[in-house]
Structure formats: C-alpha cells, structure tokens
Design a protein around this nucleic acid. Structure first.
Length: 484
RNA sequence: GCCCCGGUAGCUCAGUGGCCAGAGCGGCAGCCUUGUAAGCUGUUGGCCGCGGGUUCGACUCCCGCCCGGGGCUCCA
C-alpha cells in the first residue's frame, strides 16, 4: 500500500489496552470484595454489569428490542446516506429528543450551570488540543481542507476549556460551572460497536464542567452534582435504584479518600463495581458511571462524573487564589443524563421489559408524542372530537383526533399501537354529556370522567417537565406515514 | 476494525439457475356509518442493496463494496 492513510489513534486508546487494574465489589459496609468472592444473589444486574455472568443460554442472538420500537413508533431511524451511527429523527422522535434536551438543560441551569456554545470542530495542530486528543480514548472524525486538518469534537471539553483559559477567574468564582449540550459529539466508534440508539457515532451529550479550587471543594461539588444526576435521571423516568454503578479510581485516591468513597457508595445505596488502577493513566483520578441494563442484559453507561487533575494545567486554566497565587483548578466532568439518544434507547428498552412482564409499554407521560386520542364513532362526531382535542391543546396537552373512515375498533387498535396513554371514544352518548369514557392505557380500563379531571390528571403527571405541542397535525387523517 | 449471519414492494416477510417475482399490512378508489385492539371489494406498488464475474441465461452461484444485526472489544 503506497498511500496508506495514517489513522490518528490516541495514546489513551493504546494505554488502555495495556492498563493494569484490579476489580472489586465495594459493598455498603465499605468492604472491598474480589469479584469471585462476592455473593451476587439479589444483585443480578450488578453481576451482569460486572461481566461476571456465568454462561447464560443465549441460543437466540437477537437484535435489541428498542430498534424495532424506535422505528415502529416513528421516532428515529437509520440514515444509510450518512455514515453509520448518524440517525434521522421523525417529528415524534424529534419532539421526544427536544423535550429531553430541554429537561436536562433546565436541570443543569437549576444546579447553577452557565450555558455556553462552542465550535464543533477544532484544529488538529492546536498544541493544547493535540495533546488532549491523546488523553482521550476515542477515535475522531477528521475534516481536511487544503493543508488544514480538523477534528470533530467528541465532547464539550475543548470549547469550554479554551473559554476558561481566556477567562479571568477568582477563587470567589469557584466552583465555576459551565454547561453545553453538544449537538453533536462525534466519535468514530468501531463499526462493530454500533448498535441502534445504544452506541452512535454522532450523539447529543450534555456536558457540565465544574472548576474547583482544591480537592475538598471538588469533593463537595461532586456530591452536589450527584444529586443533579439522581434528580435528572429520575425526572426523565428512570429508577436510579435499578441502575448499576461503576466506580474507577487510582489506588492512591482510594487510600487517601476511603471515607469519602464509602459514604458516596452508601449514598448510592447499593454495592458498586470498583476498579482500582495501579497508576493514573487517564486525566482523571476518579470517575463513576451509572449503567442501565437492557432487555438483552447489556449494560451501557448513562450519567457519569469525573475528577480531572490534568486539564486545568494542560489548558492553562488558572484562577487567582486568596493568597495571591495563580493556581489550576480541579475540573469535574459530568453528564447528568448521558447521551440523549441513549436515554431514548433506555426508555424504549425499559418499556419492552415492562411489556414482557405483562404491562402495556409506555413512554413517560411528558414524552408521549400524543397524550390523548379522540375517536369519533362516526363522521357526525368528528366535530366534537376536534373540539375536545382543541380544548385540551389550549391546556397544553397533546391531544389529537382520528378522523379516518375506519371502524372504532380499528382506530382504538391503532391508538394502542402508538402507545397513546388516553383514548376517548366519542359518539351519540357523549354529546352534551358531563363525563367521557377514558380508556386508560396504564390499567386497561375505561374510566368515566369529566374532561377537566383528565386534564388535571395529565397536568399532575407532567409537572415540572417541559412541554412541546403535538408534533404533527391534530387530524390523524392528515398525517404521512414515515415508516411502513 | 476482525469473525459470523442477513439485505426481495413504503413496512413485515415468502420464493426459484429459465415462462410476466408473490402474500399480508400500508397507500389510493369505492362500499359500509361504525361503541373500546384489524369491516368488505377493487387497485396501486419491485435497478430482488450496489458493482463486477461465471453461464446460452443470475433475484438465485462466485468475488468486492455498501447497509443492518450478532460476537470480540468499547463507551455517553
């Protein structure tokens, strides 16, 4: 091969390959238990996450259930005209994603994050970045233009650090919290690692950094951020108690901060997988991630936070301390929800698992593309259905009406297949009636109630979450089919 | 990236080394005027993933590529 294309493989990638580390379970009593000694009974997901699974019979190797769901619900789809791992979002999917983006952003702003926006591509020759590239275990997309070579960011760190480098910061400003929702972060993952929405090459990641004065302040901030993580994941619709924590740190950090680490695990409330490194090979000395276990027993990280002791110096980020000396901050890197796409993946997988348990699969109420479907019994009732839908829309509820010339049964079936939480059939009996028959997906029963009551029930369920209007026409008749 | 499996209509899928490649769903047209998970009839619709090769003849066999899934690995 005369013109072999040199691939930029970061040193961190190579370093990781020969990394020496030890694995334990750190339990609630603060004991370090080697994996083969830990009693996993009652901690099945931790066993799966730890990779300590005894050969399970998986004769059927199947594709993750969220893949057919993301398509059949018309949320997301492959785009074969792009690079693999770059997806298209249909109107409903865009709405779900936008709501998640807004929600996570709201949470971070509440926490005190200052939202910024930075470029998505950077000069490979930039001295600071070139070094950082080699500290991050990811493959880049590169863009060449004449003699210049750029890479697409794989996280929000670059822009924020360069910004912080130029800022004048006093110790009084710390912890300094900077936030960006990267749309997108790009990582050119190995082809075989891509899987539906679980692992992409372009993804949307909220990234909050906190510049801290010293280790004690960083530890305090770290715990505050853990609350942000917990609240965000819970607010999205996850049960944090069902996630598994991976904690990684250097042996030195463990030795010097045992009490802190133990109390953190206690705070989490379950035993965690702990990886100890003999020496620091990465830019961080501690990191954790919260992992979701999907329908096929695959684990993938959602939220994460890290203690970075290297980039303050590498990027020349300084603050003026009380003693009049310039110092480098410790930087915490956190994604409170993990990638937004991955949240969608996890929500779909969760719904699938619930379906297997005999429940009707649903998205959280605030994310349901259509929350209420009005079904007129015959043509004469379309007007009332439309009227009711509009009434609800005025109360910021996503309601629509099925004005197609189909049987009531067919329309109900279709609404159920869309996972619509509430279905109301409207006919002669409902004209001028006080109450309407609401078919509630959650319990599968029909509840007679005034529209008003349904409005307040929905309001209660979506409280504190952002709102977006119906992402398509209110008339079901007037909607294209994006999939099948 | 490597190994294995797959790609046929918008969707799900059947099919054969050779006459015009099939079904269901969907779309469209008409009928029906519907009461809590699929009403009836008709009709439309296919570079059989792309390129090359073998062959009298390829959707079918071979090679390469692209796309998807699984495994290895890895992460948000």
């Amino acid at each position: 091969m005369s013109e072999k294309k040199e691939e930029v493989v970061s040193e961190a990638l190579k370093a990781e390959e020969k990394l020496r580390s030890m694995w334990y379970i750190l339990d609630l009593e603060g004991r370090l238990v080697p994996l083969d000694k830990f009693e996993f009974k009652g901690h099945e997901n931790l066993r799966i996450y730890s990779g300590y699974e005894i050969e399970k019979d998986r004769t059927v190797t199947q594709e993750p259930p969220h893949i057919s769901l993301m398509r059949s619900l018309e949320l997301v789809d492959y785009e074969s005209a792009s690079d693999p791992g770059n997806f298209r979002y249909y109107p409903k999917g865009r709405m779900v994603k936008a709501l998640l983006e807004e929600y996570v952003t709201d949470m971070v702003l509440d926490y005190g994050g200052m939202e910024v926006e930075t470029p998505i591509m950077y000069d490979m020759k930039h001295p600071t970045l070139a070094k950082y590239l080699h500290r991050f275990p990811a493959r880049q997309y590169t863009i060449e233009h004449d003699d210049d070579r750029y890479f697409l960011r794989f996280a929000a760190c670059f822009g924020q650090f360069l910004m912080a480098h130029d800022a004048t910061i006093s110790y009084r400003d710390l912890p300094l919290r900077i936030y960006e929702l990267t749309k997108y972060s790009f990582r050119r993952e190995q082809r075989g690692e891509l899987a539906g929405l679980r692992r992409l090459r372009a993804f949307t990641m909220p990234d909050v950094h906190a510049m801290c004065r010293d280790l004690p302040q960083a530890k305090k901030e770290f715990l505050r951020r853990y609350k942000l993580v917990e609240d965000t994941l819970t607010g999205i619709g996850f049960d944090v108690n069902k996630l598994e924590m991976g904690l990684r740190m250097t042996e030195d950090f463990w030795k010097e901060n045992r009490r802190f680490v133990r109390s953190f695990v206690k705070r989490f409330g379950k035993p965690v997988l702990l990886e100890l490194w003999k020496e620091r090979f990465a830019y961080f000395i501690l990191k954790y991630d919260l992992n979701f276990i999907d329908a096929l027993d695959k684990a993938s990280a959602l939220a994460t936070d890290q203690f970075d002791v290297e980039n303050g110096e590498r990027y020349g980020i300084t603050f003026m301390d009380e003693d009049g000396h310039e110092k480098h901050p410790i930087i915490l890197h956190c994604s409170p929800s993990g990638a937004i796409e991955r949240d969608i993946y996890a929500l779909l997988e969760k719904a699938h698992m619930e379906m297997q348990e005999g429940m009707r699969p649903m998205l959280p109420m605030w994310l349901a593309p259509s929350q209420v479907r009005m079904i007129p019994v015959s043509e004469e009732h379309i007007a009332i259905a439309e009227d009711y839908a509009k009434k609800m829309a005025r109360r910021r509820i996503r309601a629509d009406f099925d004005d197609r010339s189909e049987t009531v049964q067919k329309k109900i079936r279709d609404a159920e297949r869309e996972w619509i939480p509430y279905i109301i059939v409207l006919g002669e009996r409902e004209v001028g009636a006080e109450r309407v028959p609401v078919r509630v997906r959650e319990d599968g029963k029909i509840h007679q109630m005034p529209l008003k009551e349904l409005v307040s029930e929905i309001k209660k369920k979506v409280k504190g979450r952002p709102y977006r209007p119906l992402p398509m026409p209110m008339s079901v008749q007037r909607r294209p089919k994006f999939v099948g």
